[in-house]
Amino acid sequence: MAEDIIRFRDDEPHEEPAVSLDAFLDQSNATAVRVEAGEDARRLIPFLDRLALIEVDFPRFRDGRGYSSARILREAGYKGELRASGDVLVDQMLFMRRCGFDSFAPDAPIDPDVLDAALNRYPYVYQTAADAAVPVWKLRHG
């Protein structure tokens, strides 16, 4: 399983299996948690400093709730691994990266060349997001 994970982090992959959000909130010594689509990521905010891995599930690639979950977690200061799992496809991964995902566990393999092209295609972005990209308005005004 671990070899199918695409990571954009330098640290070692976290080995502990992720527990469900409810299980985590019940017995909160776990360090990895899985957030399903429709679950409120804000419930994790009090515990972010003890988490090493948050997995956000995409049941269908068109279900975009996970993008907001990722933004909410990064905006709250979460620095650990943020993994998108499930129906994760190459054409959505640029936006996932911009929302703060730095690891991917796709159901089906991703062609690395297509991914590389997709992540590097756009030279500029219009908005600030969870990544380091500088928005065009800032480039325009220095």
């Binding site: 690639f61 993008y67 640029l94 936006f95």
Partner: peptide
């Protein structure tokens, strides 16, 4: 228009 073009969080809306 610019702010909402390719907005990464809001490109797979309901």
């Amino acid at each position: 228009r610019q702010a909402t073009t390719f907005h990464p969080e809001f490109s797979y809306l309901p």
